[in-house]
Amino acid sequence: MAEKHTTSAGDQAYWSANVRIILISLVIWAIVPFGFGILLRPALSGIMIGGSDLGFWVAQQGSILVFLALIFFYAWRMNKLDREFGVEEE
């Protein structure tokens, strides 16, 4: 017979916060390269940064830097969330 597993309110709050952080990160991850690197590239072409226009820079280097920032943000925020719910690693 299958065993029923119930989750506590704390578990549900933890996973809800976790999924919210993931969704926010994914939205940023999608907007930066697609929005700024492709859709808004013509509008950003007049702004120069580092010897090239901003649209090209975002598509080539800026999106990579945003991805790295998202990795560090996710690790920092999840460590904070783990401490809040008492599930941090020892």
Rank of each mutant, 00 (worst) to 15 (best):
S8N: 13
I38S: 07
Q60Y: 02
M48T: 12
I38A: 05
G10P: 13
G50M: 01
L70H: 05
G86A: 00
L26C: 04
I21C: 04
A2M: 14
S8G: 15
T6C: 12
L81E: 11
L44W: 07
L68D: 04
I49R: 06
F56Y: 05
K4F: 15
E90G: 02
A75D: 03
A43M: 01
G35C: 07
D11Y: 15
S52F: 11
L81Y: 09
N79R: 08
S63P: 12
W76N: 03
A75T: 08
Y14A: 12
L70M: 05
A59D: 03
Y14L: 10
K80N: 07
L26W: 06
D11C: 15
T7M: 15
T7A: 15
F85C: 09
W29I: 05
P33T: 02
E3N: 11
G62T: 10
L26G: 10
F56Q: 04
L54C: 00
G51S: 03
K4I: 15
V32L: 01
D82E: 12
A9E: 14
F36Q: 01
A43V: 00
V19E: 12
V87F: 06
L39E: 08
E88I: 02
S45T: 05
T6V: 14
V32T: 04
E88D: 09
M1Q: 11
F34C: 06
F67K: 04
D82W: 10
F85M: 01
E3D: 12
R20P: 15
T6Q: 13
S8M: 14
S25T: 04
R83K: 04
E84C: 06
G50D: 01
M48P: 15
L44K: 00
P33C: 05
N18W: 15
P33V: 05
V19A: 12
M78A: 03
I22T: 08
R41C: 00
F72A: 05
S25I: 06
S63D: 07
A2I: 14
K4G: 10
I22P: 01
N79D: 02
H5V: 15
E84A: 11
G51R: 00
S8L: 13
I71L: 10
S45A: 05
K80D: 02
G50R: 09
L40S: 08
E90H: 11
V58R: 08
R83Q: 09
S25G: 06
G50E: 09
A13L: 15
I47Y: 12
I22S: 01
W76C: 07
R41I: 06
Y74A: 02
G55V: 08
E84L: 00
S16H: 10
T7F: 13
M1F: 10
E89G: 12
Y14T: 13
G55Q: 09
G10C: 12
R41K: 14
P42S: 06
G62M: 00
L68T: 11
M1I: 14
